[in-house]
Amino acid sequence: MTTLAETFARTRSEGRAALIGYLPAGYPSYAGCVDALVAMVESGVDIVEIGLPYSDPLMDGPTIQQAVEAALAAGVTTREVLKTVEAVAATGAATLVMTYWNPVERYGVGAFADAMAAAGGAGVITPDLTPDEAEPWLAAVASAGIDPVFLVAPSSTAARIRRVTEVSRGFVYVASTMGVTGVRDAVSDRAEALVARVRPVTDLPLSVGLGVSTAAQAAEVAAYADGVIVGSAFVRRLIDAPDPAAGVAAVRALAVELAAGVRAARH
């Protein structure tokens, strides 16, 4: 397994931010998703974030909702998500799962952390689990040896930022804006201000997500963050593709552009 720490050490040594790409498991199919994620890694994505499809994704905008609904309708299961992790981790890229909390509780908190570790996963992002309710989860990930990634938001107070950074491992997910996932014309200028507030509090890498979709935006964010997270733009490529092969090609092309973006940033 490649860890998040190893990955950020490498991207830092290369003088650039890491590129983090997201797709939900099971979309457009189990195999189609694996193909697209492997293509991302081959095209310059450093860290892969695999979404665990959930019936009530209240942090997600319409693009990801659409893909997740299709994956669920096709019968994707938690075990298939873990198989996806295994397939992607085998490429050598650090591999995360992004999941709402109830599927983890249902699988078993300890069992899920152990299964992630066994699949070669590096960590788990939990958008609706804050440190306040995370005690059993923190014990489980510590025992399994994977990284818990929590979020900070523009509305987070200084005390909240301290609390989130204390318990996060691997990196801190910096939500660029108040809102849900989705492509936006501009990355909120609140992102840079938030990174500046979090930076003095922690040595962890800071990765910015929500609203990043183009090479220019990736370059802009990479100038002040350690990681750039792109989700909806990749999903949109798959949704708009006439067939799975064209989808993989479109994902590959976007990954190449974004990888150039994070390398073009001025640090």
Binding site: D128, T130, D132, S155, A175, M178
Partner: peptide, 8 residues
């Protein structure tokens, strides 16, 4: 069990 953005 909510996004961090709503805690405040």
């Amino acid at each position: 069990f909510v996004p961090e953005a709503l805690i405040a």
